[in-house]
């Protein structure tokens, strides 16, 4: 006797830049299994029903950060979200606040520009040759477990951009650097090997300033890796103010 499968209605945003003026919604009625994640349903539609759907995905284990989408209006990783969390209908849309390239695929260039802006790498203040002398003497830039613990939480970001889709400030102030980029910039500011705090704090106070954040805390609510970007943003605010105040009374290094 054949097992009856549960049917589910899946509404997916469709947008073909060569044909459509604006995105539209297409509905699919598909058989689903209890153990499916939302990504399985999208892949089923892509494989068995409509191969023209475009979406991003890769690791299927909440590590690569590719498959972030709006599920019934909430930004979530589709590979991590059980389909059983939804009843008979689920609406799948591309991440909010991003331009739509095609169907469920968004344009990430805006984020990449902001990401580069905060210098998400270790900055050394000394000239490279002098730096190498230090390295040759010590062998490496050592770091204690306590020093690592200071920033480790913020380094767990997978750039899934759910925080940008949830942030009400980004929706209104596109120049705002935004949660993930600030969290990663702040991560390097807290790194004991880094010496670029003054540069980054100046960036945090500049265009797209961290002070645009109104602490909605939405970014931390939706973060699938518990990075707590809202904490990073608000620590960055405090650090930027302290750095600015220090600059008023203390001479800058090298000045």
């Amino acid at each position: 006797m054949a097992e009856s499968k549960k049917m589910m209605r899946v509404e997916i945003t469709r947008f073909d830049p060569d044909r459509d003026e604006v995105p539209k919604t297409q509905e699919y009625e598909i058989p689903v299994q209890d153990d499916w994640k939302v990504l399985d349903a999208i892949n089923y539609i892509k494989d068995e029903v409509d191969p023209s759907i475009s979406h991003r995905w890769s690791c299927r284990m909440a590590v690569c950060g590719s498959c972030g989408m709006m599920l019934n209006g909430e930004p979530k990783l589709t590979c991590k979200t059980p389909l059983s969390d939804y009843d008979e209908t689920i609406k799948i849309e591309p991440l909010a606040n991003f331009p739509i390239v095609r169907d469920l695929v968004v344009d990430m260039d805006g984020f990449m520009d902001k990401f580069r802006k905060v210098k998400p790498w270790i900055v050394r203040a000394k000239a490279r040759a002098e730096d190498m002398e230090d390295l040759n003497e010590k062998g490496t830039f050592s770091q204690s477990p306590d020093q690592l613990a200071t920033f480790k939480q913020f380094s767990m970001c997978i750039n899934c951009l759910l925080c940008y889709a949830a942030c009400p400030v980004i929706a209104n102030e596109p120049e705002f650097i935004g949660p993930a980029a600030i969290a990663l910039g702040h991560r390097y500011n807290l790194d004991s090997r880094d010496e670029g705090q003054a540069e980054r704090n100046a960036i945090f106070r500049g265009e797209g300033t961290v002070f645009s954040c109104s602490f909605a805390n939405e970014c931390s609510e939706v973060c699938p890796k518990n990075v707590d970007p809202a904490a990073a943003v608000n620590q960055a605010k405090l650090a930027a103010v302290v750095d600015w105040a220090k600059g008023l009374v203390l001479p800058r290094e090298g000045a």
Binding site: F15, P17, D18, D20, V22, P23, M70, G73, E93, P94, A96, N97, F98, P99, I100, V101, D107, A171
Partner: peptide, 11 residues
Amino acid sequence: TRTAPPQIPGS
């Protein structure tokens, strides 16, 4: 590449 403008959920 032409993109559709960013959106936020109606709700």
